[in-house]
Nucleic acid binder design. Structure first.
Length: 396
RNA sequence: GCGUCGGUGGCAGAGCGGUCAAUUGCACGAGACUGUAAAUCUCGCGCCCUUUGGGCUACGGGGGUUCGAAUCCCUCCCGGCGCA
């Protein structure tokens, strides 16, 4: 087995485990650093290693365009190409069906603040992604050219990119989509899941394929999806693990996750796609998730929003100009060990490149450190205490 | 000294009789960011009042012309350039 559960939390769905890949073992729960275009923006792989990152996630859609999966394949695969020795994974491009489709220029993200916040789109620009039964037609955001991704094509590209773990091609729906659309999209995503799995088996390689559970915010659909994706099992076997994708509001990030994880096979890893903020990760771990990826730590860092035990702070605020203390006193990261808020504030104001690097180091270390502590708490049997302590101190 | 061009909000720089408290950029202040079209985007940015509203002070100083001036005229001060 490629996944071993070491310890289950007695009071929740949480578990600590080990995921084996050809490029090393991953101790879970773990945060996967996002390297969309084969780079974690502003960091070298050595920096990633130093801050405890165990795995990196690239994106099929982006790598297909830049530099092209053929280049990555010829380079020896994603890890070799980007000089990352550890485990890698790629997203299928399914998220871009959402971000370039339903969400395109609508100010919608995968986490909706409130469901009443739906924007009416009288001035909507035509989306760059259009979904059909066959797949998703994208207009390249780079040059406008048209490209069709089908489940088969996505798997083929991911095979060429060569990450250790790849994902089924799915549709990430908008948090504002109707229940009826969620139902329709879910059925299609399930068909695509089977097609992805069949294609993957044909290619005969060592990659692990994760199926993706969708279903929006509807409990019935989420549970149906967990049963279907968890049970899809052609002659050559089912998925090697699961992604939990799609639309949420802040509050049901963890509730919907719980519905799903109660039903998914326990002996396979579960990756909560695109989540999240520290508080989300704490709650989702409690609800049985093993892996996470999210752009938030790195993007926030580049935008000057830094994590502390007390919540996020904006290093651009005037009050930090002469603050000669680290972002967080007890942080063990390179940035906090060597630089003051005043210096970081200066770098950001001066638009120096090092600003993004130092901030990214800190934010990623913060999130990774959080997952390390969560894992330790599960192994100790103190998860519930840890959670309460963390969330009380951390102001969203 | 003569001639000439110019002096606009923290800076640069539009405006050249009313729709100007004044385009725009930067700076400044704040906010957002969840499988990355993001080192990005949004909002604010003379003072005062609770307002989509109103009042006050403002475009080097002073004085005029006009119903009305940052915009026209006179004068003074200051700067660039040219000639002495």
């Amino acid at each position: 087995m490629h996944f071993t559960v070491e310890k289950r939390d007695s009071n929740s769905l949480a578990r600590a485990g080990i995921l084996k890949t050809p490029h090393g073992n991953i101790k879970t729960p773990a945060f996967v650093a996002v390297a969309t275009k084969a780079t974690v923006k502003s960091l070298t792989p050595e920096m990633l290693t130093e801050l405890g990152a165990q795995m990196v996630l690239g994106n099929t859609y982006h790598l297909y365009f830049e530099p092209g999966e053929g280049v990555v394949k010829a380079a020896g695969g994603l890890g070799k190409f980007m000089h990352w020795d550890g485990p890698t994974m790629t997203d299928s491009g399914g998220f871009q069906a959402f971000s370039l489709g339903a969400a395109y220029k609508k100010g919608v993200s995968k986490i909706a603040r409130e469901m009443t916040e739906v924007r009416l789109q009288s001035d909507a620009e035509p989306a760059l992604a259009v979904i059909t039964e066959d797949g998703v037609t994208f207009k390249s955001h780079l040059d406008g050219s048209e490209h069709l991704f089908t489940p088969e094509r996505s798997i083929q590209i991911q095979h060429d990119i060569g990450a250790d773990i790849i994902f089924a091609f799915d549709e990430c729906t908008s948090p504002h989509a109707s229940d009826s659309y969620q139902r329709e999209a879910l059925a299609r995503t399930h068909r695509w899941a089977t097609r992805s799995l069949v294609q993957h088996r044909m290619l005969d390689n060592a990659q692990l394929l994760f199926g993706i559970v969708q279903g929006g915010r509807v409990q019935e659909l989420r549970e149906e999806s967990a049963r279907v994706i968890g049970g899809i099992c052609p002659p050559a076997g089912g998925f090697d693990g699961f992604g939990i994708g799609g639309s949420f509001t802040k509050d049901d990030v963890h509730t919907a996750v719980g519905w799903v994880n109660t039903l998914l096979p326990e002996d396979k890893p579960r990756h909560l796609l695109g989540i999240g903020e520290p508080e989300d990760i704490v709650l989702a771990v409690e609800q049985g998730c093993d892996l996470f990826d999210c752009v938030t730590p790195t993007r926030n860092a580049r935008n000057g929003s830094l994590y502390t035990r007390e919540g996020k702070m904006n290093i651009g605020n005037a009050r930090y100009r002469k603050d000669f203390f680290p972002i967080q006193q007890d942080c063990d990261c390179y940035t906090c060990n060597n630089f003051t808020k005043s210096y970081l504030a200066h770098l950001f104001r001066a638009h120096e490149m090092l600003a993004g690097t130092l901030a990214t180091i800190h934010n990623l270390r913060f999130i990774i450190h959080l997952t390390e502590e969560l894992r330790a708490a599960i192994l100790d049997g103190t998860l519930s205490e840890y959670k309460n302590k963390f969330l009380t101190r951390y102001k969203k």
